[in-house]
């Protein structure tokens, strides 16, 4: 690992000032991505501003049925908070199916949203990777790419976003709150993750010196019936090949409201807007679920090793919707 300097922020203003002061400064929260990528030589941070003393760890129920999650709340604490378990089971399940107990004790929710892709070409430090070194190309296009994305890809990058909980947060219209020199901002979770396009190195619409302070999830009764299903090569401690956050509300056989998002298949946590639109107002049948899933995946681009995800994602979406409908939580 390259040499580092280190400081501990005493409050949010202090953190912002410390990060702004150095061109290669970065915030240090749980460290599970940053320390790992520093050691791998992928992160080029030269100064770490430790924000773990900041009072941003709350997980609170809001009167509207929603949640406030502090940016430094740890994955395990969020997953097991009663309000999350009861009001947003998909968020709890997504968190508990991510990483391991040790990592969940360390990793913060703000850091989770900012984690880098697990694409091996980014991590190996030598392959062509437009995220690591813009302009070098994307080794995944023609190399081993079984784990890569089929939705939201470009000729410049097909890396998947690795987060589980982000999939559930996107499904429930979470809002990411940040502060920076220019003041506070509220960014819809779906907008917080950028498609790679021609600039895959730009992953979020925030500056290096902008700090996530919290995540709000608006109250929505449908979330109580939500599920999160994860399909992967190992039963535990593994990233998703495909995952799905789903919640559906039905009245007299007709879909009145639905939330659907996919993980493991997109270059960002993938809100299935088109499938949702196809479902609302129609019958809550398996055939309708299949048609809606097909609509969502219609533009998917499969490559040599990952084309199987196109079918798997549709089946996962159908299963997620079925389980939400029948109240089967996992």
């Amino acid at each position: 690992m390259r040499p580092l300097t280190y400081s501990r922020a005493r409050d949010v203003d202090d953190a912002l000032a410390l990060v702004a002061a150095g061109p290669d400064s970065a915030f240090l929260a749980g460290g599970t991505t940053e320390v790992d990528l520093l050691r791998a030589g992928v992160s080029r941070s030269g100064h770490l501003v430790d924000i773990n003393d900041l009072p941003l760890t709350a997980v609170e129920d809001r009167p509207d049925g929603g949640l406030h999650i502090g940016a430094l709340a740890r994955m395990n604490d969020v997953a097991r908070a009663p309000g999350v378990v009861h009001r947003f089971p998909a968020i709890s399940r997504a968190l508990l199916q991510g990483a391991s107990e040790q990592l969940r004790n360390m990793a913060s929710l703000g850091g989770n949203l900012c984690q880098r892709t697990r694409c091996p070409y980014l991590r190996d430090g030598v392959s062509a990777c437009n995220k690591r070194e813009p302009g070098t190309g994307c080794a995944a296009l023609d190399g081993p790419n079984r784990g890569h994305a089929v939705l939201g890809t470009s000729d410049h990058c097909i890396a998947t976003h690795p987060s589980d909980v982000a999939v559930a947060l996107v499904a429930f219209d979470a809002v990411v709150h940040t502060v920076g020199a220019a003041g506070a901002r509220a960014i819809a979770a779906d907008d917080f993750f950028l498609l790679p396009g021609e600039t895959p190195e730009i992953e979020h619409p925030i500056g290096r010196d902008e700090l996530i302070v919290g995540i709000d999830v608006p109250g929505t009764p449908i979330a109580r019936n939500s599920v999160y299903l994860k399909f992967r090569d190992r039963q535990s401690y593994e990233f998703a090949l495909v995952s799905v956050a789903a919640a559906i509300e039905v009245d007299a056989g007709i879909v009145t409201d639905v939330r659907l998002a996919l993980g493991g298949v997109g270059t960002k946590p993938w809100r299935a807007w088109r499938a949702e639109a196809a479902l609302v107002g129609g019958p809550a049948t398996e055939a309708a679920f299949r048609r809606a899933a097909a609509v969502e995946l219609a533009d998917a681009v499969g490559r040599e090793q990952n084309a199987f995800k196109i079918e798997l994602a549709q089946r996962a979406a159908v299963r997620g919707l079925n389980q939400s409908l029948k109240g089967i939580r996992s």
Binding site: Y6, L28, G31, T32, V35, D36, R39, A40, L48, S100, E101, Q102, L103, N105, M106
Partner: peptide
């Protein structure tokens, strides 16, 4: 040494964490 194997598990403030990813 990359947060994958758990061999370095210790407790910090009573919680199990990975010492390799903790500065």
């Amino acid at each position: 040494d990359q947060g994958t194997c758990g061999a370095c598990t210790v407790w910090v403030d009573g919680r199990r964490v990975l010492a390799c990813l903790t500065l």
